[in-house]
Amino acid sequence: MKYTRKLLFVLCPMLVLVFIYFSSRKLHLHVWGPKSQLESEASISVGQVVGAVYDQQGFLLKLDGKLPMELVYKYGNLSSGTCKPGYAAAKMTAIYPKFVKPAPMFLDQNFKRLAKVFNYLPPFGFKTQEKTIDTILTATKNYGLGPELDSLSCKRCIIVGNGGILANKSLGSHIDEYDIVVRLNEAPVSGYTKDVGTKTTMRITYPEGAIQKPERYEKDSLFIFSAFKPLDFKWLKHVIFRERLGTEGFWKSVAHYVPREPSEMRILNPYFIQEAAFQFIGLPLNNGLMGKGNIPTLGTVAITMALHNCDEVAVAGFGYDMNTPHAPLHYYEKVKMSAIRESWTHNILKEKEFLQKLVKARVITDLTKGI
């Protein structure tokens, strides 16, 4: 009996050690991959111990411009300059497995079915604004880019930012070669065509950013509305129906007239603001409300939209260089780079980290190399 007890005293610690050894080995082999959200979050700490594959947002840590093996066969033999169908989404999925391409560019009459934005207030959704949106959509009646562009089997898009880095680059003719040219807010074309081109497919803006002088609008571009607060939807409704609108609630003066027919106006899907902020950049959720430092810039929102709806995506005029505070912030005015430091809503550094991932992995092409 005494011999049996002694044997147990010796064996028990050994069994415990063996169990710990094999358990720890199993844990060390467990690396975060494209699983369910709960599984992914639970395994992050373990992945960090042995060398994580993905960063906190879900992007590959080791990024390069090489095509994954599964994409080499599809795109590797295409001649230079040929539009690559599905390329941006395929590259994005390769570095960010959680990416899901289907996401309509604009709200249409079925917008209430968009579950991802249904329960969020503006700017991350349309909660409380359903009735106003219904009224607007009955007037606009169109929800696409137009028959010619919608029918393209492969779309090459460029987002033209407003950065001072665009000046003196002579990229105008190159920009005009893209199928879809996206411009932002009040950035002018006239007088700057050598650097920014002449073509405008759509101009994305919000009330305070919209062009206020009717003569400065292009003749044939779509007016794309992006809401950042509930009052913005009211502004669009008044503009479409040519109603009088007060200025209370806006942080600066707004346009009272937009020289566009309702059929030339669209509402940008607010999902792109939500996805850019919380999934891609990692800005604070703040209970789903707009707060300090949790709103992406309109440029990044436009890039997010393009990743879902364009086959190839390029950008120009992007990049804030905080090391040159006296450089021009925009290509069309004398405001200095230092002004962006005062931004209450944006987190420029975190946003730049996200855009650098896209450029490094060649998900997007940066023509001005400012990112």
Score class of each variant (00 low, 15 high):
296 P>S: 01
23 S>M: 03
186 E>P: 02
158 I>P: 04
145 L>D: 07
196 V>P: 02
272 F>G: 08
123 P>T: 00
134 D>L: 05
304 T>C: 13
66 K>A: 09
367 L>R: 12
362 R>E: 11
182 V>K: 04
31 V>R: 01
43 S>I: 08
236 L>A: 06
195 D>Q: 05
324 T>S: 06
162 N>G: 12
249 G>P: 08
329 L>Y: 08
146 G>Q: 02
19 F>S: 06
193 T>C: 03
285 L>M: 12
337 M>E: 07
32 W>K: 10
128 T>P: 11
170 S>A: 14
323 N>S: 15
187 A>D: 08
266 R>P: 01
149 L>C: 08
158 I>R: 10
12 C>V: 10
316 A>W: 09
99 F>T: 03
349 L>W: 13
269 N>R: 05
210 A>L: 09
238 H>F: 08
218 E>R: 12
303 I>C: 07
101 K>R: 15
272 F>Q: 00
92 M>Y: 11
41 E>L: 11
81 G>F: 03
4 T>H: 12
350 K>A: 11
257 Y>M: 13
103 A>V: 03
129 Q>R: 05
190 S>M: 09
97 P>R: 02
135 T>P: 13
3 Y>G: 01
339 A>M: 15
70 E>V: 15
312 E>D: 14
23 S>K: 11
124 F>W: 01
301 V>T: 14
305 M>W: 14
5 R>E: 15
371 I>V: 15
236 L>Y: 04
296 P>W: 00
338 S>R: 14
134 D>E: 15
320 Y>C: 06
196 V>K: 04
24 S>N: 13
331 Y>H: 02
258 V>Y: 06
358 L>Q: 02
278 F>D: 04
205 T>Y: 05
358 L>A: 03
188 P>Q: 04
104 P>I: 03
154 C>T: 09
2 K>T: 05
158 I>Y: 02
322 M>R: 11
68 P>I: 10
157 C>W: 05
312 E>H: 03
140 T>M: 06
173 S>H: 01
89 A>F: 04
299 G>Y: 03
349 L>N: 06
166 L>G: 01
257 Y>R: 15
265 M>H: 07
291 G>A: 15
40 S>M: 12
367 L>M: 09
143 Y>T: 07
244 R>P: 10
42 A>Y: 02
307 L>H: 02
4 T>I: 14
